[in-house]
Design a protein around this nucleic acid. Structure first.
Length: 594
RNA sequence: GGGGACGUAGUUCAGCUGGUUAGAACGCAUGCCUGUCACGCAUGAGGUCGCGGGUUCGAGCCCCGUCGUCCCCGCCA
């Protein structure tokens, strides 16, 4: 079809703007045809842009040319309309449309471009598979919902920049082509053409660079920065994702927390959520004991308690102490199959001892009554403060062997808690539970490798009072690390760093990293530490996760313009992809068949 | 690496115990229609049942393999 030229015409309004007070005005609108309703001699077009929709009337009595043109137009055609804003007649007002009180009588209709029929409808709520949406992401992004999500993302970034600038933070860019540090996540590698056999690595985070900026005297730094991790994906994990990376010199944890809390308050104000400050602080040990998670969802009750059995009762029911108990209010009516399912879940998570007590007005029922006797069971229920109508779940290990076994028990208790909360629909949407988890252990003992590993990262400072335990009892050393948790998901994490060489060396020693190895990996950084490093610390916030939570989306893919699938593939441009032999030759690479 | 769910028209799905011509809705096309806004009415087009192999007289359905998507575990300092 013959297309019209835009010429020097400019839009006078967006498609979502026109109201009654514009009546009588001649306007020029442009956008996409959302829908066309052809009543024969009268054609309505809904014209759409990112602001909304306006009804265009193509009446041959006004202009035969416009009507003829409208006859040829289809969904998603790009058109420009010049016409007069008129107030709609009685009975033709559309109250579901913001512009529904008016319409535009078209004098001129320019068809600026045609469009193929899209593979799925361009509307907010669609059932189309994500696969198809991602293949045609440019059409998916045309949908109002995605427009809102990405525009919210823009405003979030603006808020971050304004807030941190206000507090004296400097935005400084750090390199994407850097050096592989084979600790932590797998790196994405970039082969070097000039240096065959050598590789850059894309940063998992700008951790070392931001610390170097503190050494360089920038005092306060931030960056909204892409990070890359070559690990398996999830709904809340992408191979490239964005962090709000923050670092400050001479830090006091509470000062940093306050800056972050105020930032979070401003961010959530964008979606009309009032955030209560200050956030609760919870030691890691408490989080693990009560919630069985280092990122507990505290928005509903259900807290585990460590309990021990009287005298030799543990032996009678063949469980190792301590066991964990959970009071589930009002669930004494739990069915056999529900309990069986819970037990199965517990077992699959490593907690191989499971029992329960049903407390009712009439009776106290439990598989433990037989081996322990009723009074003991009733005492147990009482110690859990169980009321009639409650169910008490008990979780344990048949034989406890190690610290990691107890960690497994904690993890299982945490999963079970969430499982029950979902089953009983205790997690209410629209509640926002912010929480700082603090006092993480410094090290995690790796049972298989028989060595300690850094729980956060090897540059995290131990608590000052724990310094002398680094050598004698590393397992009990607490780190000056913290996580920011919202509704059971980790939205940020950071620490006060090590600024002293001697401490850094000791930590490497605990980690079993020899002087040479450490030098090989982080030599430049260890050198820098020697030139007057100020105490410093910071945090990295998960930008994608925070925006997804604000937008009410279950997956961060919904707030990323061009995300990848769970197998790290871009459905649209079909990356990764092979390259020309010539390119490989230039890089000195050859592909090995496996 | 492991577990689960799924894969049929452009889209979302149905398809019985294996049975002969694979359906529906929406979308799309054509025609009619001057107040629609989920327009209406009529007609029509549209299928490599993900792919490969096997069993069978016969496979969308059963078996084996494979590819892909989503969710979870491991992993993600």
């Amino acid at each position: 079809m013959k297309l019209d030229l835009l010429g020097d015409r400019q839009r006078t309004h967006y498609c979502g703007e026109l109201r009654k007070e514009h009546a009588g005005k001649t306007v020029f609108l442009a956008g996409w045809v959302d829908v066309r309703r052809d009543l024969g001699n009268l054609i309505f077009l809904d014209l759409r842009d990112h602001t909304g929709r306006t009804q265009i009337v193509c009446n041959p009595a006004i202009s035969a040319a416009v009507h003829d043109r409208a006859d040829e137009v289809r969904g998603e055609y790009v058109v420009g309309v010049e016409g007069e804003v008129v107030v709609r007649g009685p009975g033709t007002v559309n109250p579901t449309l913001a512009t529904g009180e008016v319409e535009v009588m078209a004098h001129t209709l320019l068809v600026l471009n045609e469009a193929k029929t899209p593979p799925f409808p361009i509307e907010d709520e669609i059932k189309t598979s994500e696969e198809t949406r991602l293949r045609y992401r440019y059409l998916d992004l045309r949908r109002g919902r995605m427009q809102r999500n990405l525009r919210l993302r823009h405003r979030s970034s603006q808020v971050v920049r304004a807030h941190l600038s206000e507090h004296g933070f400097q935005e400084i860019e750090t390199p994407f082509m850097t050096r592989s540090t084979p600790e932590g996540a797998r790196d994405y590698l970039v082969p070097s053409r000039l240096h065959h056999g050598q590789f850059y690595a894309l940063p998992q985070s700008p951790q070392l660079f931001k610390q170097l900026l503190m050494i360089a005297g920038f005092d306060r730094y931030y960056q909204i920065v892409r990070c890359f991790r070559d690990e398996d994906l999830r709904a809340d994990r992408q191979p490239e994702f964005t962090q709000v990376d923050i670092e400050m010199a001479f830090p006091q944890r509470e000062v940093l927390f306050d800056i972050i809390e105020r930032l979070v308050e401003k961010l959530f104000a964008l979606v009309d959520v009032k955030v209560e400050r200050p956030f609760r602080r919870m030691p890691y040990d408490e989080a693990m004991e009560k919630y069985g998670s280092d990122k507990p969802h505290t928005g509903f009750g259900l807290e585990w308690k460590r309990i021990s059995l009287a005298a030799d009762d543990a032996g009678k029911v063949r469980v190792a102490e301590p066991i964990k108990g959970l009071r589930v209010p009002g669930w004494s009516g739990a069915s056999r199959s529900q309990l069986d399912k819970l037990q199965e879940t517990a077992k699959s998570l490593g907690a191989d001892w499971f029992s329960y007590i049903k407390v009712t007005d009439a009776d106290t029922q439990s598989p433990l009554v037989k081996p322990l006797g009723k009074p003991a069971v009733e005492a147990l229920a009482a110690s859990m403060e169980a009321q009639p109508g409650d169910l008490v779940l008990l979780l344990g290990l048949k034989s406890a062997t190690s610290i990691s076994a107890f960690r497994m028990l904690d993890n299982a208790s945490g999963e079970l808690r969430l499982d029950i909360a979902r089953k009983l629909e205790l997690i209410k949407p629209g509640t926002w539970n912010f929480l700082w988890v603090v006092d993480f252990p410094m090290f995690d003992y790796d049972e298989k490798e028989k060595r300690f590993a850094a729980m956060h990262h090897p540059f995290t400072s131990p608590r000052e009072e724990d310094l002398e335990k680094l050598e004698s009892d590393p397992g009990s050393v607490k780190a000056r690390a913290y996580d920011l948790v919202l509704n059971g998901s980790e939205i940020g994490g950071g620490s006060i760093r090590i600024h002293r060489q001697d401490v850094q060396r000791q930590v490497f020693k605990v980690l079993g990293l020899s002087e040479e190895k450490a030098r090989e990996r982080f030599g430049f950084f260890l050198d820098a530490l020697e030139y007057g490093t100020p105490p410093h610390g910071g945090i990295a916030l998960g930008h994608d996760r925070i925006i997804a939570l604000m937008a009410g989306e279950a997956s961060i893919r919904e707030v990323i313009a061009f995300p990848k699938t769970a197998s790290a593939i871009d459905m649209m441009c079909e990356s990764p992809a092979g390259v020309e032999q010539e390119q490989l030759d230039e890089l000195g690479l050859s592909i090995k068949e496996v």
